[in-house]
Structure formats: structure tokens, C-alpha cells
Design a protein around this nucleic acid. Structure first.
Lengths: 226, 226
DNA sequence: CGTACGGTTGACTAGCCTCAACCAGAGTGG
DNA sequence: CCACTCTGGTTGAGGCTAGTCAACCGTACG
């Protein structure tokens, strides 16, 4: 799914790559902003002025119902691009999960480049398709998987995306995970405890924020796929 | 969301429009195929050879888990384009819900055109974004809405897309609706009965496949949005 | 005419949610 | 340095929503 490079900011689908013309001249300048934990980056229905790439930290993007129920559509980790809208307004609210630094680029400048540069247009389409694919898989999870399968799928996804040396240091809280998986935080907690009892995972020290995956194969078997 | 024209095949995002160059010369030929009710159009993971547009009828696209649980990601009705993949393989299985005629176009020919024609590339991106937007909204429904809210949202969506003279003639079965909404067919049936009791909808004759929406305003209030 | 299919409804069950208590670690201020 | 509070996490008891299983009904169809 993602190409692994030593530096996530330099992989093919980076903002830098997006802003390159086919002739590989950097066309746009990248600015940098840091958001404190919990701070909003942009709100749903706000005009989409910028496109972002996570440099360090993590971002959640979500929708709210009027009574406060929340659905997180995606977590954006180091290297991920977000805020790429086609229309002129954002369709999610995004917040920093932890202290987070992002690169940003004016949406407008991207669009004008895409007009004339097929390479850039292709990159835009590719990124949108990646998002679509993730959303499609997530619909299956939300519509048809059990709580244990959801949590297993989540751990596998995060393992692929942010593991360092076999330890998952999850930046997000149980509540965030729950709102991503369409569950309650208690159910998430119970599922993780259950996986612990099964010997699929362990914890670093006493704190349970860091998880060691002990048996990836068994974990994968708990998440039904095709 | 959708532009209304008298003929759904002629609205802006049609296959015909897709196949036009900026100079509006028709570049590609459109073929036509008819599928009997229940017949598969293409399978998940099959190579994506064609892009389709529904001429008459309805199509469901879905994913399966290995134990048979099914999640329908979308219904495609007259005028809708589907099977537009960026990679080379399909990510859903699609079947005709009823007897259905589709137009088709070789994916390859579209791609080559998009290479050189910014207009076509823009259309492709726009359609992918429309699909993404639908998937994002559906995640919220699947993750956070109650059964009654889901069914109400479904009826509202179908009302927007296929109502003729205040009557919803649903082409799909209760099972299809259930697999679209992440419910069971019994729960869908009960929700519809409940809406009937509430006086929000009625039926044409004895058959309950055709639904009259009596109170769209009340229906909308049952589906929490922002 | 009999059968198959799709839909409805009822009785019961189960999985997840709600409410609540409790606990550990990180800050904070006296 | 210690008490205090706050936050995030776990766990238990009980309730509710949606799922399961099953019977029944009407229409369509061979």
C-alpha cells in the first residue's frame, strides 16, 4: 500500500513531489506549522485553502452528528497528505492528536499546476484514489466486522504504518480508536485486554499506551479479510 | 449533489462527456451490454478493463468477508458511472440488481486520453471525488447511526436519486438494503414498518416494494446530519 | 396448482453500550 | 516533597438495540 523509504516525507506521494512539475523544478514553497495536541487544524465546511502533509505527530479527521456522536474517518501519520479536497470546502474537521508539525501548500497553486501538468494531475488522482480505497475498506469494517475483528484490523493497520522495532506506540487515545472503529472506548479496552489474555500482544512497562505485538499471524487470523 | 436533467445519460459527468476531448470530438466508441437480474458484471480483484455507465436498471457493488458477510458500498442507478478504478484491478464485485443495460468504454482508451487532455483528467478526478465523498458520508452512517436513522437516510438518498412522482420504486431487496446499511433484513423491515406506523410513509397497493413518502420533512428529521 | 421468493412479524438471544467504580501516572501547587 | 487533581485506562453489572431463528403470508411464476 505505501512505499517504504527511510524518510516518509520523501516517498513518491509527498507534497514536495506533488508540487514538482514533470521537469522536476520545485514550483511551490512549503511552509511549516506546529499545532499543540488537541488543536483544530481546520473545520468541516471551511474553505479549503491549503493541502497538508504531516511532518511529525498525528492528525485525526472526523465528522460529527448534531448530538455529538463522532466518526473518525482517518488518522494521518508522518508522511501522510490530508486536506486534499476537490471542491472548495473541507469535508472533515481535523485536529492534532499529539503535538504535530505539518507542511502546507496553497491548494490554488496546486490546481493551476495540475491544469497544465499531466504528471501533477495524475498524482492528485492517485492520492484521491488511495483515500477512496481506505474509505471503502473501512465501510466493510464498520458495516460488517465484530468488535474484536475491528480492533485486530486497527492494530494491523497501525503496525504497518508506525511500528518501530516491534513496538506500537499509539499516539491516539482509546476514545479516538473507538470513534474510528464505530465502537465505545470500553469495548475497545475490553478487546485489547482480550487480545492480551490470548497472548497476541503485550505491554511495555505498566503503561498500556505502548503495545507489543507478540503474534502478528494470530492477530491477522482474527481479522477476517476477503 | 447531482445535476438534474431530463436524461440522466446526458448530464455533465456522463461517459460520453468523459470520452470527449476538450475540442468536443467524440474519441471513443460506446458499447452496450444487458445483464439479467443477479448476474455479475465483474468480480473483485479482476483486471479493470472497462468503465461502465448504467443506462437502465440498477447495480450493486460490494465486498465479501470469507464467511459470507457482505457490505454493499454503493448502488448505481441510471446515469451513474462505476468501475472507474485507478489501479488495474476492481476493488468491488458488481452485480445487476434487476435487468440492467450498461454502456461501456475501454479503461485504457480513457487513460491515454487523460494523459494529454486536462479536461478529461479533471473529470476523472471529479468522479473519484464524488465516490470518495459518498464513502465518507457512509462511514458516518455505518459507524454512528441507529437503525432507524440509517433507513431514513437510505430512503432520503433514494428519493433524491430515483423518485418518480412521489413514489419510490425500490429496485433492490430488503437484503440488499440491509447489506448496504450494515443491518439485517429483519431490522430494515421493522424500521420501515415503524416509519409506516409513524405516518411518514405509505405503500402502493398491497406490495411494499413501492413506497410513498408522505412526510419528507419528518423523515429528514429522523436522520441526524451535521 | 404448487412452489419459490421476498417480506413481515414474533420470541428470544447476544453483543455492544451505559453507567459507575476504581486505578495508575502525570502535572501542579503549597 | 507530598497531597491534590486530572486524565486516560480498566473492569464490572445491568440494560438495550439489533441479531437470530422461526413461523407465516402474499405474490409471482413455472
Amino acid at each position: 500500500m505505501f512505499v517504504r523509504t527511510t524518510d516518509p516525507l520523501l516517498r513518491p506521494n509527498s507534497l514536495r513531489a506533488l508540487g514538482m512539475s514533470s521537469g522536476s523544478d520545485p514550483i511551490v514553497r512549503l511552509n511549516e506549522i506546529t499545532y499543540k495536541k488537541g488543536k483544530e487544524i481546520y473545520g468541516e465546511k471551511e474553505p479549503a485553502e491549503y493541502v497538508y502533509q504531516v511532518k511529525t505527530g498525528a492528525v485525526r479527521s472526523y465528522k460529527l452528528l448534531s448530538d455529538g456522536r463522532r466518526q473518525i474517518g482517518a488518522f494521518h501519520l508522518a508522511g501522510d497528505i490530508f486536506g486534499l479536497e476537490n471542491g472548495t470546502t473541507h469535508r472533515f474537521t481535523t485536529e492534532a492528536v499529539v503535538d504535530t508539525t505539518v507542511l502546507l501548500i496553497k491548494r490554488q497553486s496546486l490546481e493551476t499546476v495540475a491544469e497544465s501538468d499531466a504528471m501533477v494531475a495524475k498524482n492528485l488522482l492517485g492520492m484521491t484514489t488511495t483515500n477512496l480505497q481506505h474509505a471503502e475498506d473501512h465501510m466493510l469494517l464498520l458495516g460488517r466486522k465484530t468488535s474484536l475483528e475491528r480492533v485486530a484490523a486497527f492494530l494491523i493497520e497501525m503496525d504497518k504504518r508506525l511500528t518501530a522495532a516491534g513496538v506500537l506506540a499509539l499516539p491516539m487515545s482509546r476514545r479516538d480508536i473507538a470513534d474510528y472503529l464505530g465502537l465505545t472506548l470500553e469495548t475497545v479496552s475490553r478487546a485489547i485486554s482480550h487480545l492480551h489474555e490470548l497472548g497476541v500482544l503485550g505491554f511495555v512497562g505498566n503503561t498500556q499506551r505502548q503495545i507489543i505485538l507478540l503474534d502478528r499471524h494470530q492477530l491477522a487470523s482474527l481479522d477476517l479479510q476477503p
